[in-house]
């Protein structure tokens, strides 16, 4: 019994000494607000973005599609799954299986949606499945950015997600099966190392330095309506991950954390 306690205490210490880092499914493209249409690159990487740390192997996604909406036109969905090509993405500490593709964007909103294959997290003993969304715009004509796409877990923006200046707030609503999730826990990370698409790697240089581990992974909670608010302190991409929105969800007989991730890009006022 004593041995067990010592072992447990040791494990706790080990767990506590590990830096606070969160898994974030990325859908990366360099710009969220483009002036002109054309072909844009997309990379799907499952990583720890603040530290550009351990990058997890992604399986073949269940779904990857884009919904294009422009003005009052009916949104149109296009399947991008067949266009995905497997790549190896290099982090600062390892490399992992990722995906990339290209997409030709004309005017309006383009909402990219990814439903990944669940990832087995050995350290935690459960699967992680982060349904992820990124909204970009071409030319400034808005579409249906404020409407839910209908993902099982989803963050719906309450502010136009591609028009945020640095210092603005971002507000979103966390949904599970279309219904708000009161008090949802949301982790936030900054994309601190620029993804280099040509090298399929993160840049070594960090844009910001965390004075302490708490700042690497910020945590906030949604209110009773599932709404959260975040003041954006720095330009660049920010990821929001609402965690474990379906606590009873399992995959292959094991616990699976069903999360909703969304990325937004803020721009400096110059």
């Amino acid at each position: 019994m004593k041995k067990k306690i010592v072992l447990f205490a040791g494990m706790m210490l080990l767990a506590m000494s590990l830096p606070a880092m969160a898994h974030f499914q990325m859908i990366y493209t360099p710009e969220a607000a483009l002036n002109k249409g054309g072909k844009i690159p997309l990379a799907l990487v499952f990583t720890h973005p603040f530290e550009a740390g351990h990058t997890m192997d992604m399986g073949k996604p269940e779904q990857f599609f884009v919904v294009r909406s422009r003005g009052e036109n009916t949104p149109k969905k296009t399947d991008l799954l067949p266009t995905l090509k497997p790549v190896i993405w290099t982090s600062l500490t390892n490399s992992g299986a990722a995906w990339e593709t290209g997409y030709t964007a004309r005017g309006g909103d383009h909402t990219f949606c990814l439903i990944p294959d669940p990832y087995w997290e050995e350290g935690d003993g459960f699967f992680i499945k982060q349904n992820t969304k990124v909204i970009i715009n071409v030319g400034g004509e808005p579409g249906a950015w404020m409407e839910p796409v209908g993902l099982p877990t989803e963050i719906v923006p309450l502010c136009k997600p591609y028009d945020r200046w640095t210092g603005n707030v971002f507000q979103g609503q966390v949904l599970f099966n279309g219904k708000p999730v009161p008090g949802a826990e949301i982790e936030i990370e900054y994309m601190n190392h620029k993804p280099l698409l040509d090298k399929k790697a993160f840049a070594k240089e960090a844009a910001a330095k965390a004075p302490q581990d708490s700042f690497v992974l910020q945590t906030i909670f949604a209110d009773v309506n599932g709404v959260f608010t975040f003041g954006i302190p720095k330009q660049g991409w920010w990821g929001f991950a609402a965690l474990d929105l379906d606590p009873d969800y399992t995959h292959k007989g094991k616990k699976c954390s069903r999360d909703a991730v969304m990325w937004i890009k803020a721009v400096d006022m110059k």
């Binding site: 002109k36 249409g37 422009r70 003005g71 009052e72 036109n73 004309r106 005017g107 309006g108 071409v138 030319g139 400034g140 004509e141 808005p142 579409g143």
Partner: peptide, 25 residues
């Protein structure tokens, strides 16, 4: 703001897409 962007469809046709910055048709 009025917005209009045109694209070459690659088949000797051009498509222009118009709208307004507030999303109206």
């Amino acid at each position: 703001t009025p917005l209009c962007s045109c694209y070459d469809n690659g088949d000797n046709t051009i498509t222009c897409e118009g709208g307004f910055s507030d999303g109206s048709s």
